[in-house]
């Protein structure tokens, strides 16, 4: 019978392999302990839910992109560690900051702050997001595999059924040109 640690290592491995059901399991399993901790700092259930969702996604993204490669403690402890930063940021933003001293426990600050900046800097990317939605296939899949999943060109070629990495390179260039044209049109229409 697998131990708790085996199960958690398996969850990390599933995240790295792109199995998004792993995020569901983590979300469900860590929620009780996270909320028990977080309610001491913030008395607003709606915001807590929001912060918890961002926290679990930040953990997922840190594992997926290789910023967290192994576990020194349980996944829930990591989630609470990241959640402290998220709560700290939320309280600071709403000017309700209390004294949170021991946030450096797991040294998760840099990765989490980068993630917070990324998800909060939405205005600048919003037109591009609209343009991406209009892009169509195969460009959407190709660019998503390249920019979000950070796959190598040879892997993208195999996944999308192209002959080789060079074809991906030229196809990606064309897709970026199309994206620029759509973006310009979207921007013009939005003005």
């Amino acid at each position: 019978m697998p131990t708790l640690i085996d199960k958690e290592v398996q969850l990390l491995s599933r995240i790295r392999n792109g199995d998004e059901r792993a995020i569901d399991e983590i979300y469900i399993a860590s929620k009780g302990r996270f909320l028990a901790f977080a309610r001491k700092l913030l008395n607003d259930e709606n915001s807590l839910e929001d912060v918890y969702q961002d926290t679990v996604i930040a953990f997922y993204e840190n594992v997926r992109t290789g910023k967290i490669t192994s576990l020194n403690s349980s996944i829930t402890t990591y989630i609470i560690g990241i959640g402290k930063y998220m709560l700290y940021h939320h309280l600071k933003k709403t000017k309700a900051m209390s004294n949170l001293d021991d946030v450096d426990e797991l040294d998760l600050g840099i990765a989490t702050n980068t993630y917070i900046e990324q998800i909060e800097n939405k205005e600048t990317a919003i037109i591009l997001q609209q343009a991406i939605e209009k892009l169509g296939e195969p460009c959407t899949s190709l660019l998503r595999l390249f920019y979000y999943e950070e796959k190598e060109n040879t892997e993208i070629a195999t996944l999308l059924g192209y002959a080789n990495a060079d074809v991906i390179k030229s196809q990606k260039y064309r897709c970026m040109q199309v994206l620029k044209v759509i973006m310009k049109k979207t921007y013009k229409n939005g003005k």
């Binding site: 998004e20 995020i23 569901d24 979300y27 469900i28 839910e49 969702q53 961002d54 679990v56 996604i57 997922y60 993204e61 990324q118 998800i119 800097n121 939405k122 600048t124 990317a125 591009l128 997001q129 991406i132 660019l143 998503r144 920019y147 979000y148 970026m176 994206l179 620029k180």
Partner: peptide, 25 residues
């Protein structure tokens, strides 16, 4: 432009994952 594209895909996926977790809630 390349930086913003990368960011736009990250945001798009964040929103998608968020909807997924909201639906679990």
């Amino acid at each position: 432009f390349h930086k913003q594209t990368k960011l736009a895909f990250a945001n798009q996926q964040h929103e998608r994952l968020k909807k997924r977790l909201q639906s679990l809630s």
